[in-house]
Structure formats: structure tokens, C-alpha cells
Design a protein around this nucleic acid. Structure first.
Length: 424
RNA sequence: GGAGCGGUGGCUGAGUGGUCGAAAGCGCCGGAUUGCUAAUUCGGUGAUGGGGUCAAACCUAUCCGCAGGUUCAAAUCCUGUCCGCUCCGCCA
């Protein structure tokens, strides 16, 4: 959510930003609405003040007659104030509806355009593999080593669910262990998180749990929703809180399951583990001061690179174009791993994503910071980034590390947890 | 799931209809003082919106979990709701 004053003072920039984000909206209506809102606000406040003054006179009234006159006057003033207040509230509601549809502003370095206009920033340390045999995709590798059971997943939970089996379980746990111990070692507080969250928390983070397009599973007759990412619960952890500025940045790494309906994704590359309704993820989350967030965003991206370098997976880093950014993001970097089994001869596939959401989520969630000696509070900045989504990481590992005999090398970083150097 | 109790300022905790944004203590900030990393003492110390100012000061409205209701007037009475605690039941 943008700040109302910011919007009013920077209307042209906001309109331009909406256009480059591809968001249909009319923020200009807010200007006139806010002017009349202020008018009603002042009127309501003035009437309220008069009513308060009248109320204070009542206990001091000389006699019953005077008291009755004052009570009647108070009654009228309150009624008038309620009417003005109601008008103010109605206008305020209209303004909020418009503003809540607006995306965050955009970092000046973000490329213009849509999905295909992302800027390629860099590549990982690991080169794309060159096979002297026909490489398999991860589904075929899984069949060979009995790693997944998609059929049973469909029987039990429907299409898009799966069981991991055997070494896939070890790999899954190893990825979690590796990511968490790596991050705990560089200042992140490890947490396990609820897998369900209240609707208003989702909305604060920028998810909309209702409507036909929603990516969110909701529990009927409750305010609970299955989280699509621990970003929701980690950000929600500090909702309504005021953090001592000296404690910033606050770094968390959270382990959670992630649930996504994938509404509207039917037909898109959906084979195997790539697009599923449930997966496990270690997520990084940072609450920072406004000055710290750009540097923190680079740090989260660099940590993702270190993790995938350690997993010996080839990847590229892209700076997502404006039109492809979600509403809360000010800038977003993705790591796309090379997946030799995708398409005819391999494709890049997104494995991580890190966003700087500046104060967009903090304003909705009301997360502030307080600096000692300074008057008032500031909204913090929030950032999130994938450390490891185990499903997609496994795709990249299995497909890149397969060998001619069908076995798969386990990256050194994972061997302590997998307990072996080769699968199969 | 059943029964009971409770949610007040950074914290502890008073406060059952008007003078309460709210006692007291702690913490914190500033001053004084004592010959010394402490003690004593005085004062100050919430947030948000609106106005005001170069910036302050200042003025004003709102906020005692949240949302409604009663009343001229609500932290205080009523209803709903969320959260927490205790006991019982169930349970990994």
C-alpha cells in the first residue's frame, strides 16, 4: 500500500508507475476525494469538540432545567458529528479501495516491459553440464531410483500432489538442513512457522485469499488459509509491532510448507515436481530500516547465489521487468537454474526469488520502528527471498548431476546430511 | 469441545459512568548533588490523524484487544468477536 500523502504529492509518478506495471487503475480520483474527506474530518472534529465541551458542563449545571437544555444540545451535536463522521468514513473507504489496488513504486534500475524483458545480471560458478549421453528429466530419474510417487499423490490428494520416497526424502531434508545451518551461521534466526495464517495477515503481505484467481487454499468457515510461502507468516510475525530501530535489521529464516492452488496454470509446464500444490521451502525474511533495504536486497540475492553455487547448480540471475513484478515488490531478483530435462534440450527454471517490498507490506501490516530520541515512528522495510524450495532445487540437482550410468552425484554440501555421495 | 478468569502506556499494575491519556512503581531521557561505572533528588517521558511552523513550540481529534450498542458523557455498563491463562475432556 502506498502512502496517501505520497500519492497526492506524486500523482504523475504514480500514474506512470501503474502503467509500466501494467495495472489498470485511476489514482487521480483520490485527489478530489481526499480534499472532501479532509473537509468532513474537520467538521466532525469540530462538532465533536463542541459536544465534549457541552458534556463537561452538564455535571456543573445549576438546576435541572439548565441540565436538560445542555443534554438536548449535546444530543444534537453528537448526531451532527455522527453524520459528518459517517460521510468522512465513506469517503475514506473509497480512497482505501483505490489505494489498496495500487502496486508499489518501482526501483529506477528495473527494466521496462514484461516477462520476456527481464535483464540477465550474472551467472553462477557452475557451468552447464555437457552430457555425452541423452540426459533424462527428473521424472525419469525418479522412476529409475524410486524417488517419487505421483500416482499415489493423485489418489490421496488429487493431481499436483506427490509422495517423496527413499533418497528423495534424504535429499529434501538435506536441503532444509543445509539452508538453515548456512543462514543461521550468517545471522539469521531460524524459525519454523505456522502453515496456516489469518486472512488479514495474507492481505497485509499482499495476497488476496478470495476470488476465482486466488492462489490460496482457504479453510471453510474460518479466517484461516494455507500459506503459499513463509513470507506470509514471517512478515506477519511483527504485525502491529513497533521494533526498536537498534534491533534492525531483523533477519529470520523460516521453514514451512507452501500450498498453491495454481489456478489458471493448467496447461503450463506441469510435469513432475516443477508446478505442484505443496512443497517445502526455507525462506529468508528481513525487516530493515528504509536506508538498509537496497543493500539487504543485494545481500539476500548473494546468499541465494552462494547456496546454489554450493549445490553446484548452474544458474543465472535476472532482474525482473516492471510489468512482471507482483504488487508489493519494488524490485525482484530471480535465480533461474539450468534444468537439462525441461523442454527439448534444457531450459532455465525459476528456483528462487527475492523481493524488496520497501514499506508496502509494513504499512498494511503496521510494522514500525522507533528510534531512541527521535520523535514518532517509521514504517520498516520488508524483504523476502527463497533460500531453498526443495522441490525445484531437487529438479536442478537430479538433472544436472546425473551420470551416464543413471546414478546421480550428491553435491558435497549435502553429503553430510544425505549420508552418501551418489544416488543409485 | 466444557467451565472459569482475564486482555489498560516500553514493562508491572491501579482504576465500576463525567475533572482519566489514565495512579503508583520500574525502565528510559535531562538537570542537580555527593571525591569517584553506584546512591540521593528534581523534572520530563506514548501513538496516530488534522492544523500550525523554515523547523520547533503549540492547538485539536482519536486511541485502555477488536467491532458494535446504551448514554449528553464509556477504560468503566451491554452484545458479539479475537487472543491469552487455569481446570476438565480429548489427543501427537
Amino acid at each position: 500500500m502506498l502512502d496517501r500523502k505520497f500519492l497526492i504529492e506524486n500523482l504523475d509518478a504514480v500514474i506512470k508507475n501503474c502503467a509500466s506495471r501494467g495495472v489498470q487503475c485511476d489514482p487521480s480520483a483520490v485527489i478530489a476525494l481526499d480534499a472532501s474527506r479532509l473537509e468532513k474530518l474537520k467538521l466532525a472534529e469540530d462538532l465533536n469538540r463542541q459536544a465534549n465541551e457541552t458534556s463537561k458542563l452538564i455535571p456543573k449545571a445549576k438546576d435541572n432545567d439548565e441540565r436538560q437544555v445542555l443534554i438536548e444540545k449535546g444530543r444534537e451535536l453528537r448526531a451532527a458529528k455522527d453524520a459528518a463522521q459517517a460521510e468522512q468514513d465513506a469517503i475514506d473507504q473509497q480512497i482505501s479501495e483505490i489505494i489498496s489496488e495500487l502496486p508499489n513504486m518501482t526501483h529506477p534500475d528495473v527494466p521496462e516491459g514484461g516477462e520476456d524483458d527481464a535483464k540477465e545480471l550474472s551467472f553462477g560458478k557452475t557451468a552447464k553440464p555437457e552430457f555425452d549421453f541423452q540426459p533424462l528429466d527428473h521424472v525419469a530419474i525418479g522412476e529409475k531410483h524410486d524417488l517419487f510417487d505421483f500416482e499415489a499423490g493423485a489418489r490421496v490428494s488429487g493431481s499436483g500432489f506427490y509422495f517423496l520416497k527413499n533418497d528423495a526424502v534424504l535429499l529434501d531434508l538435506a536441503l532444509q538442513q543445509f539452508a538453515i545451518s548456512k543462514l543461521a551461521g550468517v545471522g539469521f534466526t531460524p524459525v519454523t512457522t505456522p502453515d496456516l495464517a489469518l486472512t488479514h495477515i495474507l492481505q497485509g503481505i499482499g495476497f488476496n485469499p478470495r476470488g476465482p484467481e486466488t492462489q490460496i487454499y482457504s479453510v471453510e468457515d474460518t479466517e484461516l488459509n494455507l500459506v503459499g510461502t513463509a513470507e506470509i507468516t514471517l512478515g506477519g510475525m511483527m504485525a502491529g509491532q513497533t521494533i526498536d530501530a537498534a534491533d534492525l535489521p531483523l533477519l529470520l529464516c523460516g521453514l514451512s510448507h507452501c500450498f498453491r492452488t495454481e489456478a489458471g496454470a493448467a496447461g503450463r509446464a506441469s510435469k513432475g515436481l516443477y508446478r505442484v500444490h505443496q512443497f517445502t521451502k526455507v525462506e529468508m525474511f528481513a525487516f530493515t530500516s528504509p536506508e538498509q533495504s537496497d543493500a539487504m536486497h543485494d545481500r539476500l540475492r548473494d546468499l541465494e547465489c552462494e547456496i546454489f553455487d554450493a549445490l553446484e547448480v548452474p544458474y543465472r540471475v535476472i532482474d525482473t521487468a516492471a510489468g512482471d513484478l507482483g504488487g508489493p515488490a519494488y524490485r525482484k531478483f530471480d535465480l533461474e537454474a539450468w534444468m537439462p530435462g525441461r523442454g527439448d534440450s534444457g531450459q532455465w527454471g525459476e528456483v528462487t526469488s527475492t523481493s524488496n517490498c520497501t514499506d508496502y507490506q509494513a504499512r498494511r501490516l503496521n510494522v514500525r520502528s522507533k528510534q531512541a530520541g527521535k520523535k514518532g515512528t517509521d514504517f520498516v522495510h520488508t524483504l523476502n527471498g527463497t533460500a531453498v524450495a526443495t522441490g525445484r532445487a531437487m529438479i536442478a540437482i537430479l538433472e544436472n548431476h546425473q551420470q551416464a550410468d543413471g546414478s546421480v552425484k550428491v553435491p558435497k554440501a549435502l553429503q553430510p546430511w544425505v549420508g552418501k555421495a551418489v544416488i543409485g
